[in-house]
């Protein structure tokens, strides 16, 4: 009897060891590439390190105090929220409309899906340069067209508000295909019988959408909202290609500002502080959105 118990315990221990061993690579990778940089970032945020010197001093909370008083940082945060929340809303609404349209059967449907998804395949940097060539004042496609029509040229990216709006529009246009694909997948999981039953009961199109499609699409909405929000909050390459954060600091996102502070301004300590602030912002918003949307999920 005792030997059987011992054998059982040994077997359980072996199982646990085996499970631990399977987890180990992931833990090591996570520790090395996520946890260690995060802890390093927090440590650097309390220093005046210039980013390359072999020595630095700890300066307490100075960088954090400065962060709250810095108008350029405030601009970068406001822009980041516009890029993040704005592009999440636009891409979700736009992507859902595309998905509803392209879920129907019609000639050229596959071509339309491919055309909408195609920009996702291009890197943000390349997309930024393509749009810069379209928008630039001298030799830009849009201005050349306007000139041909007898209209005055416009320096589209010179006005800070317009430049932020254009960045928001371009990033939304580029990644709306991704949202559309997720919604298409979500729509195809909804049983057709629900719609047939509702139709037989005389339920109108809008009510069917509101009471069947939307609740059953909640997982897709959560996925899309989270992905698009994080993508927008981390926007970097498009800003660099289009405006490099200018004019002045007016179109910087927090990501481009982190890059500027670390590598150009040689202010790595302050840059790390901003990185921590961005991390906390993304985490807070993501948790809040997930909690809000999870309540609206419906099982079928």
């Amino acid at each position: 009897m005792r030997s059987n118990v011992n054998a059982l315990n040994r077997s359980r221990l072996a199982d646990r060891l085996q499970i631990a061993a399977m987890y180990a690579p992931a833990f090591v990778l996570f520790g090395l590439f996520v946890f260690y940089p995060l802890i390093s970032g927090v440590r650097i945020s309390f220093t005046d390190w210039n980013g390359y010197s072999q020595s630095y001093s700890f300066i307490g909370w100075d960088n954090y105090r400065k962060l709250f008083a810095d108008s350029n940082i405030r601009t970068a945060f406001v822009n980041t929220l516009i890029y993040g929340v704005g592009s999440a809303v636009i891409q979700n609404v736009w992507g859902l409309l595309y998905a509803l349209l392209l879920n129907r059967k019609f000639a050229g449907r596959t071509l339309a899906r491919a055309a909408i998804y195609l920009p996702v395949m291009i890197s943000g940097l390349i997309m930024g340069y393509i749009w810069y060539f379209m928008l630039q004042y001298s030799g830009g496609a849009l201005n050349d067209l306007m000139s041909a029509l007898g209209l005055a040229r416009v320096d589209w990216l010179a006005d800070p508000n317009r430049a932020v709006g254009l960045i928001l529009f371009i990033t939304s246009l580029q990644y709306v295909g991704q949202a559309m694909v997720i919604y298409l997948a979500g729509l195809q999981t909804i049983p057709q019988t629900y719609y047939e039953a509702a139709e037989m009961d005389g339920v109108r199109v809008w009510s069917r959408f509101r009471h069947i499609t939307l609740p059953l699409l909640a997982p897709a909405i959560i996925t899309n909202a989270t992905l698009k929000l994080i993508g927008g909050l981390q926007l970097f390459d498009l800003v660099m290609a289009l405006t490099r954060g200018g004019p002045g600091f007016s179109t910087h996102s927090v990501s481009t500002m982190i890059n500027y502070l670390y590598f150009a301004s040689q202010n790595a300590g302050y840059s790390a502080t901003l990185g921590i602030a961005l991390f906390l912002t993304i985490m807070t918003i993501t948790i809040a959105i997930n909690r809000f949307l999870r309540k609206r999920e419906v099982e079928h």
Binding site: D48, N50, Y56, S57, G246, P247, G248, S250, Q266, N267
Partner: peptide
Amino acid sequence: GSGLLAGTMDAAQVIAAMSEDYTRLSNAK
């Protein structure tokens, strides 16, 4: 310079930024 030309910084802000970075970078180890 970019801020000055864009109108997002005035001369006083430019001078303050130059002075601040001069001190910070001069003191860098």
